[in-house]
């Protein structure tokens, strides 16, 4: 099974390749505003270097959010175009799961923080169950300084694009902060998770939309 993964939800622009069994390749560049211009060329280049013909792809994984609205649409637009031309599925992968991809299980809990707008963060809480990271509660949008709201004082990772901005109060013990670049999601994680989802038949919907979380304000 040959899967492409596209990751443009954060300030890292990345593309990766994976089979259901192994890592094939990944390109990631941390540069704000690069995504629209670069992601298609990076995809083409990585496929060439890996010796994969685009027509061999079995599916196109894409980081579906939460994240930058524009970033999500750049990645999903490219994924939709690729999948349509190949007659293969788009496989939407939750961005926070892509952040957690490859993290050692211990201490078995994780708090993922991604950048939102207006000094806010998206916060997702996860625990390790049946050999994978599972959502413990639904994703919240919180002010950066309030990221520990209702957070249990237990050993856990904090990771994600916004993890570096958050001050860890001294009462919290056993917090392991993951630093860059591992705190960013990457295309390989997206591809690997997409391969797993495809294998399990977890392809959510035929034609996905970004996972914005935020409803547009003022909608009737």
């Amino acid at each position: 099974m040959k899967i492409l993964g596209i990751e443009t939800a954060t300030s890292v622009c990345s593309v990766g390749l994976s089979t259901e069994k192994q890592f094939i390749g990944e390109t990631r560049i941390h540069r704000q505003g690069l995504h629209a211009e670069a992601i298609a060329g990076m995809t083409n280049c990585l496929l060439n270097k890996a010796g994969w013909n685009v027509r061999e792809l079995d599916g196109v994984g894409v980081s579906i959010g939460p994240g930058s609205f524009t970033g999500l649409r750049i990645g999903l637009g490219l994924a939709k175009g690729l999948a349509m031309g190949l007659n293969r599925p788009v496989i939407p992968v939750p961005t926070m799961n892509a952040v957690l991809w490859g993290l050692e299980p211990e201490p078995f809990r994780a708090c993922v923080l991604l950048t939102s707008r207006k000094n806010e963060v998206y916060r997702g809480l996860y625990h390790w169950k049946d050999n994978e990271w599972t959502e413990s509660s639904s994703i919240d949008i919180l002010p950066v300084e309030d990221w520990t709201r209702d957070l249990p004082n237990e050993p856990a990772y904090i990771t994600g694009e916004a993890a570096g901005l958050c001050v860890i109060p001294s009462r919290f013990t056993g917090i392991k902060r993951i630093s860059t670049p591992a705190a960013f999601p990457g295309g390989y994680g997206v591809a690997a998770l997409a391969a797993r989802q495809l294998q399990r038949g977890e392809v959510i919907g035929e034609d996905p939309v970004p996972y914005y979380i935020k409803r547009f304000q003022g909608m009737p």
Binding site: A40, T70, R73, G77, L78, G81, G85
Partner: peptide, 19 residues
Amino acid sequence: AGSLLVGLSVAKGLSLSLG
């Protein structure tokens, strides 16, 4: 810009997949 991006991204995906 955001609207143009959608069309451009999809067009690039089609261009890549169809060669």
